[in-house]
Design a protein around this nucleic acid. Structure first.
Lengths: 219, 219
DNA sequence: ACCTGAACACCGTTCAAGT
DNA sequence: ACCTGAACACCGTTCAAGT
């Protein structure tokens, strides 16, 4: 019954003037700066407002509460990640199954690493944000893009995609998260970059059958 | 340089009298009750103390701050989970690789499901707790137990265990977490219980070679 | 020795008063 | 119309006063 417009998590007003647009941007940047420099525990509405150069009251015109502010920051970050993976999927169509798998994994990891510090910081605050909805929205987008790419594979046909792909995405996210949270040290990341592609390939190949007989796919 | 005894996260005193022991237990139970009934946002020191039948000040004799209280609750939960998986690993020694894999996965999932609601609630508060240390301690224990079991496999020898097992554990945790957080609905859980074993088997088999020739392992 | 709970510092949020 | 920031309610934590 509730329409998304009355959830308390959306930004309160769409920026209608150029000044508002700039203010909104300043608030986002201030939030990220405070988060990365002072940490989640010191991320205070007052501090963000001060850093952004607006008053607290003014900030509450854009976001109805602190949660909605953080929610917006997280949504932008996850959106960028999803965009990157979608683009990679589009590039990979019609290749062989293992190439598609490797390409998607590489795109996923490199998108996470692009803003490693932010990714790590957001893992820590996400759970406070009722992010289930956000999470599942992104999962759906990723699922759709990955399925489309895999369906186009030239050599193999995946069985039971509806189950395989979501589980694979969850497993890959979990492994990546663990590597980033465990300090994000070079050794951890190398392990991830070497082993995660193997895991994905192995699971996909175990869930696939060769395409129509008669097609050669050696080499 | 810091010894673990001066981290602010440990319980402040070991219960030395029977009464203290009971109080501590009451505090733990009150915390879990408040967490599950009122939610993380309403989990207040005052509320927990009231529910446990002690004063706030008294609670601060046992735990130096709210974080340490939640940390202790999380540690107990993860400890129970790890105990269960360790026990399963011990039972599974000398079986075939796929049997060991399936057995461990089943034990892991069923341990999480045993306290499904608590698991879900703790996912949400864990990030506030500087739980990296806890997490890595548990990961080390799990890693050790799982490696021991896999090493004993009668049919296959795992290559590169140092990399494969941690990644597999992270992936399995991630997939389980996603299923529980996505509502923990029956459909999600069935998917997990069907597909996660396949994923683990596929990755392990892809990383393993047959044991010394001459050993029959059909049937 | 141990417990209590009022008091303190601080944070999220609001809204009367300004421009 | 839009912004400001003092004021309010509430929470984590402490410590003087009790037993």
């Amino acid at each position: 019954m509730a329409r998304s417009s009355d959830t308390a998590l959306k930004a309160r007003k769409a920026p209608q003037q150029a000044r508002s647009e700039a203010t909104l941007q300043a608030i986002f940047e201030a939030t990220i700066q405070v988060l990365l420099e002072d940490g989640a525990a010191r991320l205070t509405t007052t501090r963000v407002a001060e850093r952004a150069g607006v008053s607290v009251g003014s900030m509450y015109q854009y976001f109805p509460n602190k949660q909605s502010l953080l929610h917006a920051v997280l949504a932008r970050h996850l959106g960028a990640l999803t965009d990157a993976v979608e683009a990679a999927c589009a590039q990979l169509e019609e290749r062989k199954l293992t190439e598609i798998s490797d390409g998607i994994v590489a795109a996923f990891i490199s998108a996470k690493l692009e803003r490693l510090d932010l990714s790590r910081a957001l893992y820590r605050i996400a759970p406070e944000l009722d992010y289930a909805e956000l999470q599942s929205g992104m999962a759906r987008r990723l699922d759709k893009a990955v399925c489309a790419a895999l369906l186009s594979a030239s050599d193999m046909r995946l069985e039971n995609m509806r189950r395989v792909v979501p589980l694979l995405l969850a497993a890959a996210s979990g492994a990546t998260r663990a590597a980033l949270e465990a300090g994000g040290k070079r050794a951890q990341l190398e392990m991830l970059q070497e082993e995660l592609p193997k895991l994905c390939r192995a699971y996909l190949m175990a869930s696939a059958a060769p395409r129509k007989a008669g097609k050669r796919d050696a080499e």
